[in-house]
Design a protein around this nucleic acid. Structure first.
Length: 824
RNA sequence: GCCGGUGUGGUGGAAUUGGCAGACGCGCCGGACUCAAAAUCCGGUGAGGGCAACUUCGUGUGGGUUCGACUCCCACCACCGGCACCA
């Protein structure tokens, strides 16, 4: 054994050992409890960053811990390898996206292995390989059959100068990221996935996500945005039309004083004569906060009270939500209130607060702002006097009975637009034939291979239009000349089901037969037991995956509805108060860190500096501290190596141990207990590591003087190494072997603790007077309450504090403290 | 605006059920080793007062509940994140 700890030597030795023995590959073991541990796979940008180090260290601790607890652990890794950066590199450097991507994958795989992560590479997934994206295409075709995929016109970001579509991320301050031209919205025909079909189920399913952080579940609920209300038809006066509106506040129906419709509302053409006025409203559509309206000259009739109200076209009414038309109640909606003030429209209060007060119940004429709360109805015909809550139900009932409208549920969730006018993605498997229209590519012709002979210039629209061999084909229906769809799929499609692909080994498998098999591996592994990743995916990826899981379930391919049982969202890595980023120039390069300190130190620090879900403030000095800790541990084993090798494995009668040995023995059990509980309880690795540091401190101050002492020392160090191994696996293996044990440490079980051995025999009893600490008394564990009371009152300092004041009460908290309450 | 989160020493963070606030690490101070420095090791380290024993204050602010509050309740402030004309 070297005197000095050399991470490079130790780490490469054990990485080779693990690889040679295939220690991390997993096979299904029926009868043995499976545990599927998954971290979000990276985009192969070329280099790993500190966010990866943190994410994958967390996942690796969980995987290694669960293995030692006897679980059969599936811990796979792969590459989210379609996407824009590859294409940008091609435009900039002329290198093919495929070449660029595969080079990056090779480099990043080497880096991940250098971190000592326990992945089963036999299941590696690469989304840009035809054997993977073939199934994107297969799912697409099935979804098309089921009506879950469809095509419609939709707005996209369009740069007029580059003549191409931009992803939202490429639009910066409404300008093109490359040429700074103002981006416009262009209407194009796009493919969509009907995620709204599952809106209600995805919302209901949120309640089952008990292993997810509450805030993520909440974000999903808000994103789905369920709104329960009613649709009501307002007949138009003088023309044979009616205006259908949606409202969640039917209790305010009697307060309607005007109506608004969206500029794209179908009735606009019929109602509006003033084209320039309409254009003015359209110009202010969308993001503008200023409210602009145009009176159409027409009126609608409130079917509940017969009121004639003016109809406006307004810039703030969205065509995509509800019916694209609203009833406006200025007295009870702030936005309507502002609009009414601007255009001098009457305000009619129909709800008053339950508690009577001038400020809460201003007159309609003197209102300064809308009263948006619930209350009691006034001036609302037969519903006057009802509480809002009751009135909502009664009015909906009335409307339905009279055939004026119906109760309805709306969601903010929109269908998922998956078309991208980009090259580096999964080709959408559709062929356009003049005679037959849009025809799906038959299953037997899958995959539709992404062609290699494409020049990427960044100019023009979809790059696939450049490849004649790809573009021109025969119609699968009639055989006549046809063209392929040139759009590719959003890369979020790739990541919506990769966790299912991991259930099988890599290669060109027939995924569908595998899934359908009654013996299917997926039945054993799914759902993912622990998913670890950044919170930035709280809605998109995590929602799409939940959607896809349901789609696959309804196709009869999988059995679960929810893909991820437990979710851990780790915080960002921060330096100098900001997220690490190249533009801020505050990045720390993991390669440098690993080269200088080793993987064990890097892992240890990223786990120790903060609990996983919180942001981690980077500290170079903190890394030094973690490194010192491992050095100290190395020193202990080096200094005591012969004693550790030769000592008895068995400890004699505990009662015969001298005080220091007994103390260390107890501390060892306490540490096993604390580390285990900290990992089990929300993965609090930072406090688990702190406990290991405490044990190391104890071991260092322990001087073994007898055989019994040496046995205790050996016992303590062995437990210490087992407990440390998930965090810093290489050094744990090395020292484990040095002590004369057979590798691998990971083939040992996680240590158990003995509750009796962990117990202190004496405790320091805290004595308070009126809640203030006044003295401490050493007492044996198990001292009866009466005795504790007597000891506390007998204490010299307590006697002095109390003096001759009357004792009102004495409170004894078992094993902790005594509080003596005295009078003045 | 709506929803959520977080506020604790010089600093990252502990405090598991309402029971010793500041575990562990960093930094800093002092000491040992050294010609010297680095590394390492040992000791100290919330603030104020006191020679000292000790004592007062102290977990964003203000109130409350309790024998006892970082922890529970009410009101407020600051910062961070998500959504945002959603009818």
């Amino acid at each position: 054994m070297e005197e000095k700890y050399s991470p490079q030597t130790v780490e490469s030795k054990w990485q080779k050992y693990w690889a040679d023995r295939d220690l991390h590959s997993t096979v299904r073991a029926p009868g043995r409890e499976g545990f599927y541990c998954l971290e979000m796979f990276p985009y192969p940008s070329g280099e790993i960053h500190m966010g990866h180090v943190r994410n994958y260290s967390i996942g690796d601790v969980i995987a290694r811990y669960k293995r030692m607890r006897g679980c059969n652990v599936l811990h796979p890794m792969g590459w989210d390898s379609f996407g824009l950066p590859a294409e940008n590199a091609a435009i900039k450097h002329g290198v093919h996206p495929s070449e660029w991507t595969h080079k990056n994958i090779a480099n990043m795989k080497r880096q991940l292995n250098r971190m000592g992560l326990s992945y089963d590479w036999d299941r590696e997934v690469t989304t840009c390989s035809p054997e993977y994206y073939k199934w994107n295409q297969w799912f697409f075709i099935k979804m098309l059959e089921k009506g879950l995929a469809y095509k419609k016109f939709s707005y996209v970001n369009w740069c007029p100068s580059c003549a191409t579509v931009l992803a939202n991320e490429q639009v910066i301050d409404e300008k093109c990221w490359r040429c700074d031209s103002v981006v416009i919205q262009k209407k194009l025909e796009q493919w969509f996935f009907r995620i709204t079909h599952y809106a209600e189920e995805l919302l209901q399913g949120c309640d089952e996500l008990t292993g997810w952080p509450e805030r993520v579940v909440l974000m999903q609920k808000n994103w789905i945005g369920k709104g329960e209300g009613v649709e009501v038809d307002f007949p138009m006066e003088g023309i044979n039309e009616s205006l259908r509106i949606f409202t969640t506040r039917p209790d305010t129906l009697f307060g309607v004083t005007f109506m608004c419709i969206a500029p794209e509302h179908p009735l606009v053409g019929k109602l509006v004569r003033d084209k320039s006025g309409l254009d003015a409203v359209k110009a202010k559509y969308g993001k503008e906060t200023e409210k602009v309206g145009l009176f159409t000259g027409h009126h609608a009739v409130n079917p509940l009270n017969g009121d004639k109200v003016p109809v406006y076209v307004a810039n703030f009414v969205l065509m995509e939500y509800g019916t694209g038309a609203i009833m406006s109640v200025p007295a009870h909606d702030q936005r309507d209130f502002e609009f009414a003030k601007k255009y001098d429209i009457p305000i009619k209060a129909v709800i008053i607060a339950e508690e009577k007060s001038e400020t809460r119940n201003p007159k309609s004429e003197t209102m300064q702002e809308a009263y948006e709360d619930d209350g009691i109805l006034v001036g609302s015909g037969r519903f006057t006097g009802m509480k809002s809550e009751v009135a909502k139900k009664e009015i909906i009932k009335y409307i339905e009975e009279k055939g004026l409208g119906k109760a309805i549920v709306n969601y903010k969730l929109r269908d998922w637009g998956i078309s991208r006018q980009r090259y580096w993605g999964t080709p959408i498997p559709v062929i356009y034939c003049d005679a037959c229209g849009a025809v799906p590519v038959p299953e037997k012709d899958l995959p539709v291979i992404l062609p290699e002979d494409v020049k990427l210039t960044g100019k023009g629209s979809s790059p696939l239009l450049e490849s004649d061999s790809f573009l021109y084909t025969a119609c699968p229906n009639c055989g006549s000349g046809a063209r392929r769809e040139t759009d590719t799929m959003d890369t979020f499609v790739d990541s919506s089901w990769y966790f299912i692909r991991y259930c099988f080994t890599k290669g060109d498998i027939d995924l569908i037969s595998e899934l359908r098999s009654p013996e299917s591996e997926q039945r054993y592994w799914m759902p993912v037991d622990q998913y670890v990743g950044g919170v930035e995916h709280a809605v998109l990826h995590l929602l799409y995956s939940r959607f896809f899981t349901r789609v696959l379930r309804d196709l009869g391919l999988i059995q679960v509805s929810e893909p991820f049982r437990n979710l851990l969202t780790q915080g960002m890595v921060i330096k100098d108060g900001a997220k690490m980023s190249k533009s801020k120039g505050n990045v720390v390069d993991p390669n440098y860190l690993i080269e200088r300190y080793g993987a064990d130190t890097s892992r240890l620090f990223s786990l120790f500096a903060a609990p996983p879900e919180r942001d981690l403030e980077w500290s170079d000095k903190g890394v030094d501290g973690a490194h010192r800790f491992l050095n100290r541990l190395w020193g202990i084993v080096y200094k005591n190596q012969s004693a550790l090798r030769q000592a008895n494995a068995e400890i004699g009668d505990r009662a015969n141990l001298r005080h220091a040995a007994s103390r260390l023995y107890r501390k060892t059990h306490q540490t096993v207990k604390k580390v285990t509980n900290d990992i089990e309880r929300e993965y609090h690795f930072n406090t688990a590591i702190a406990a290991l540091m405490e044990l190391v401190n104890e071991v260092i101050s322990f001087e073994p003087a007898s055989e019994d002492d040496q046995a205790v020392l050996k016992y303590a160090v062995e437990k210490l190494l087992l407990l440390l191994s998930p965090f810093s696996p290489h050094i744990a293996e090395e020292l484990w072997e040095t002590m004369g044990n057979t590798p691998s440490v990971f083939e040992r079980s996680w240590p158990e603790w003995d509750e009796e051995a962990a117990k202190e025999d004496t405790i320091e009893l805290v004595v308070q007077v009126n809640g203030k600490l006044r003295s401490k008394v050493m007492i044996p564990v198990g001292t009866p309450d009466d005795e504790i009371k007597r000891l506390a009152l007998d204490d010299q300092r307590i006697k002095e504090t109390i003096g001759d004041k009357p004792i009102k009460k004495v409170i004894v908290v078992k094993g902790k403290l005594v509080n003596i309450v005295i009078g003045e």
